[in-house]
Simulated assay, not measured.
Amino acid sequence: MICRMWHGMTPRAKADAYAALLEQRALSGYRAVPGNLSAYILRRDEAEVTHFMTVTYWESEECVRAFTGDDVLTARYFPEDEEFLLEFEPFVQHYTVAAEMRAT
């Protein structure tokens, strides 16, 4: 299983609107790709900025590739991101899940 993590920052004043965009666009995009196991949008508000992290879980790197194309570590952005993000981080992080615990 692969965990894919992306980070972005918005001005705090735009955070609610960006959270709605991520929920609408990103989650539906992940849901449409076979092999996506789950997706989470995390938010941390600081003084004047808000951090967002998307954390997605995939069956395999091949499933991630169906979402990203061949360059699996390059971050993907929506055209609307230009209205919100303070910077565009070029890469994401991938981790192989080494152990797992699920609540029963």
Rank of each mutant, 00 (worst) to 15 (best):
E62H: 09
L85G: 03
P11W: 10
R102W: 07
Q24M: 10
T74N: 00
V55N: 03
E100H: 05
S28C: 11
A13K: 12
T104Y: 03
A75Q: 12
A103S: 03
T104A: 15
E23H: 12
V55P: 01
E59D: 13
R31W: 03
A47G: 06
R25S: 13
G69H: 06
A32K: 11
H7Y: 08
T74F: 02
S60L: 04
E89P: 06
E87L: 11
E62T: 10
R31S: 11
L27S: 08
A15T: 05
H51F: 11
F84H: 03
P34Q: 09
V97I: 15
V72Q: 04
S38R: 09
L73P: 00
T54G: 03
S28Q: 15
T54H: 07
N36A: 10
M5L: 11
R44M: 05
M1K: 09
R102M: 10
W6I: 03
H51Y: 10
L73V: 15
R76I: 13
V49R: 14
F91R: 15
H51N: 10
I41M: 06
R12G: 00
L22F: 09
Y40E: 15
E89D: 12
A26T: 14
A32Q: 09
Y18C: 01
Y18H: 00
V49D: 01
A98N: 02
A75P: 07
T10C: 07
M101L: 14
